[in-house]
């Protein structure tokens, strides 16, 4: 680690600690005094300051490996959540119909729509990136 990069890492860590303390303090004060705007302002200022520090630090946060891992994690999440919600919707619809509880059946139907929406949005974004990187133009 060069002196320069070491300094950057230390400064970034220090900034993170400072910002976290600041956000915690403002949220705590806002919550205890019942001032929602103070808590919100604290969070927004903290996020903005952190984004500024990250940008100026020049440190690499993402690279191709992180992107590749993110893509695989996103696909795994998509498959897991789709299967889970699909099964849950079947279960709710089945239970709702058997017990005559319209609320549970409607919840199952909504889950079913969410799964369909998930798959459709996945297909559209996949098609988008396929065209973007597929060399069609």
């Amino acid at each position: 680690m060069t002196l320069h990069s070491a300094g950057v890492v230390v400064n970034l860590r220090r900034a993170k600690i400072l910002v976290t303390s600041f956000v915690c303090a403002t949220v705590a004060v806002g919550a205890t005094s019942g001032n929602m705007y103070l808590a919100l302002a604290g969070i927004v200022i903290g996020a903005l300051f952190m984004a500024l520090v990250r940008r100026r630090s020049g440190e690499v946060h993402t690279d191709e490996r992180v992107d590749a891992l993110g893509g695989r994690a996103a696909r795994a999440t998509f498959v897991i959540m789709s299967v889970f919600l699909g099964l849950l919707s079947l279960f709710f619809i089945f239970i709702g119909r058997n017990t005559g509880d319209g609320g549970i059946e409607a919840l199952g139907t909504v889950f079913c729509y969410i799964v369909c929406l998930n798959c459709a949005v996945y297909s559209i974004t996949f098609k988008y990136f396929d065209r973007e990187h597929g060399g069609e133009y």
């Binding site: 319209g102 609320g103 059946e105 409607a106 139907t109 909504v110 729509y113 969410i114 929406l117 459709a120 949005v121 559209i124 974004t125 098609k127 988008y128």
Partner: peptide, 25 residues
Amino acid sequence: GFCVAGIGFLMLLFMFFVTASWIGC
């Protein structure tokens, strides 16, 4: 444009179906 319009349309369709299911319930 196609991607954004497609996703927007799907979101509207989803909201419509959810609202209709809620009315039915």
